[in-house]
């Protein structure tokens, strides 16, 4: 026991990786379909990205360059922790630059910069089943997917409009993949949904606690559910990023005082830094320059 256990490359044993790769291949072959897999206990808690970590561990090779983000940022604690895990057990090169990464593991965001061919985006998924909160039973939801019975999904959207005058789902907004399976995009804001459509990158989704893997292959149709007369729209921010002046990006609200003072900054920290080093400045940057 004192002989510290020798861990395999990327932690998982090869047999487990093969099993997960088989599940990934099946998921790619049936876009949007949730493939059951025998999720392993990982050295981080269920619900903290074990699904994404298992997917990444199964596909990563020594030549890969890994980026890990949480809430769009490379420096959030859980992203730091997962990146450090792979740096240790796989000794791979890590980066914060979206363009340099071959594998990007993410929680809750898709990078602003469009992904390219050869890149893989690995999502951490808490609840893979888009029908779960309408029908808690796995045995029943499986049947609904098999028979393409998705009327209930629209019932939910109908209720939103009847009650709030609009579709009130703002994240984990359900999509239909390649005209067949309704899929949960994981709790990304609906702002990111259009980025999934016809993406050049391979998108893999891992739900460890729920034992499911699903995928959106490159150049696949991903359509957000809506009504003709209440079409899907994404969030729009009134002001640009205070640091880099970016518009049409997703922003975090930062509270500055207890009198309602706040500012907006980029959620995608890498994109923000890149813009600033290219000379873009926001209102805050201008203040700085003036001082």
């Amino acid at each position: 026991m004192n002989a510290v256990a020798q861990y395999n490359f990327a932690y998982l044993d090869e047999q487990t990786k093969r099993m997960i790769r088989r599940a990934i291949l099946k998921a790619i072959a049936i876009p949007g379909y949730q493939v059951p897999f025998s999720s392993r206990e990982m050295p981080m808690p269920y619900g903290w990205g074990t699904g994404g970590v298992q997917v990444t561990a199964s596909i990563i090779g020594p030549d890969d360059v890994l980026k890990v983000i949480d809430q769009g940022a490379d420096d959030t604690t859980n992203a730091v922790s997962i990146r450090a895990f792979f740096a240790k057990v796989a000794q791979v090169e890590t980066t914060t630059h979206t363009a340099d990464a071959t594998i990007i593991q993410t929680r809750h965001r898709i990078p602003e910069k469009p992904l390219g061919q050869g890149q893989i985006l690995v999502y951490q998924v808490p609840i893979p089943e888009p029908l779960r909160f309408l029908e808690p039973r796995e045995t029943e939801t499986r049947k609904m997917h098999a028979l393409e019975e998705y009327g209930l999904m629209h019932v939910k959207l109908y209720e939103d409009i009847a009650r709030h005058g609009r579709i009130a789902t703002t994240y984990a907004y359900p999509v239909k993949v390649e005209g067949r399976y309704v899929m949960d995009p994981s709790p990304t804001p609906k702002f990111d949904n259009p980025k999934m459509h016809m993406s050049a990158a391979l998108q893999l989704f891992g739900a460890g606690r729920e034992h499911r893997i699903y995928a959106v292959p490159p150049y696949t149709e991903v359509v957000s559910l809506d009504f003709e007369d209440h079409p899907f729209t994404i969030q729009h921010f009134e002001e640009p990023c205070a640091l880099c002046g970016a518009e049409q990006v997703y922003l975090d609200e930062v509270i500055l005082d207890d009198r309602g003072g706040h500012m907006y900054v980029c959620s995608d920290t890498d994109n923000c830094e890149e813009r600033r080093s290219a000379g873009h400045v926001g209102t805050l940057g201008m203040q700085e320059a003036a001082e």
Binding site: E149, Y150, G151, L152, H154, V155, Y158, E159, I161, A162, R163, D226, F227, E228, D229, H230
Partner: peptide
């Protein structure tokens, strides 16, 4: 019936299940 959703959605569910995607028409 679906006891937890509105009367309108109870009536509209079948329409949505067969592909009606127009909220105004369903309503």
């Amino acid at each position: 019936l679906r006891m937890g959703v509105s009367a309108g959605a109870n009536v509209g569910e079948r329409l949505m299940a067969v592909g009606d995607r127009n909220y105004g028409h369903i309503r």
